[in-house]
């Protein structure tokens, strides 16, 4: 027999009490795995520690931050990160929306296509990355073999600056378009049919209906997609680690996240990497405010 609600406590008050208890486990995990290490990173960022204690550890104030701002690699990595965001979204949004619209038509065989099209987002990125690197090879890669039937000299995907950046965008898009597609598909299926049908009766063509009715009502979903993709590009790691071998050629595909990794784990500069990490954290904080606006949109 369930115990009765304590006397004098409204359902809402009881819920509020319970809520505090329910989020406790989440708090414990977030503090252990996120807050403590982040505090550690902030502390490290004001020191001069190296992975091998080459120097006497001490506090050096803002030195690491000044160093980061003075380093051209820092600014270049931010530009690279932004490029991946913008170019990625420019490819992923139209293709994802287009595929979602196609699936939404519910043609025969849609179930098969839906399964096939979500496969890329499910596979292990490390395995997928290795396969892409193999396929993108300029000599025995299958992609350039195919391209040579169409153009004389296909790009040297992993060997030249600009092609390498597009190669990363391509692999990243291959993995994320299914996600965009699913989100848009969900948005489409929750739209009321009324307005579009009314417009069709008034003689509006499919394109007009899409531009003036469907697209505006998808805006909240698209904003959520943009937000998540922005975060995921900042976090992009596995693919860069494998496909372009840690941001190559040269610094062409080195994002700020990867520069942080390289500084901390390749150069052994723990504290300099911590400062880069803190800057990276500061840069993703605005995401929170966007989320507050769009994440809870009705």
């Amino acid at each position: 027999m369930p115990r009765a609600m304590p006397r004098g406590l409204s359902l809402e008050q009881a819920t509020r009490r319970l809520a505090v208890l329910l989020v406790l486990p989440t708090w414990v995990l977030l503090i252990l795995v996120f807050a403590l290490p982040l505090a550690g990173a902030i502390w490290l960022s004001f020191r001069n520690e190296t992975l091998g204690s080459f120097v006497t550890p001490r506090f050096i104030g803002w030195e690491n931050y000044r160093g980061a701002f003075a380093d051209p690699r820092f600014w270049e990595s931010i530009r690279t990160t932004l490029f991946f965001m913008v170019a990625g979204l420019a490819i992923q949004l139209p293709l994802g929306i287009g595929l979602a619209l196609l699936l939404h038509r519910n043609l025969r065989g849609t179930a098969f296509f839906r399964s096939a099209l979500i496969v890329p987002m499910l596979l292990t990125p490390v395995a997928v990355g290795l396969m892409w690197r193999f396929m993108l090879d300029a000599d025995f890669g299958i992609i350039n073999w195919a391209l040579r039937h169409v153009i004389d000299s296909p790009p040297n995907w992993l060997g030249a600056r600009i092609p390498a950046r597009f190669a990363v965008v391509m692999v990243d898009s291959w993995i994320s378009i299914p996600f965009v597609m699913l989100m848009v598909l969900a948005g489409l299926s929750s739209l009321p049919r009324g307005p579009a049908e009314a417009a069709a009766i008034d003689g509006a063509g499919p394109l007009a209906i899409f531009v003036f009715i469907t697209l505006p009502s998808l805006v909240p979903v698209i904003l959520v997609i943009v937000m998540i993709r922005v975060v995921d590009v900042v976090k992009l790691f596995d693919i860069l680690f494998i496909v372009t071998q840690r941001g190559g050629p040269g610094t062409a595909t080195q994002t700020l996240g990867l520069l942080t990794y390289n500084t901390g784990f390749i150069f052994f500069q723990t504290s300099r990497a911590a400062a880069l990490g803190v800057l990276l954290t500061l840069m993703v904080i605005p995401i929170y405010f966007i989320w507050r606006r769009v994440g809870r949109a009705p």
Partner: peptide, 12 residues
């Protein structure tokens, strides 16, 4: 060198 030489790691 081969076309892919420019992106060849030691292993490649």
């Amino acid at each position: 060198g081969p076309e892919g030489g420019i992106s060849s790691s030691g292993d490649d």
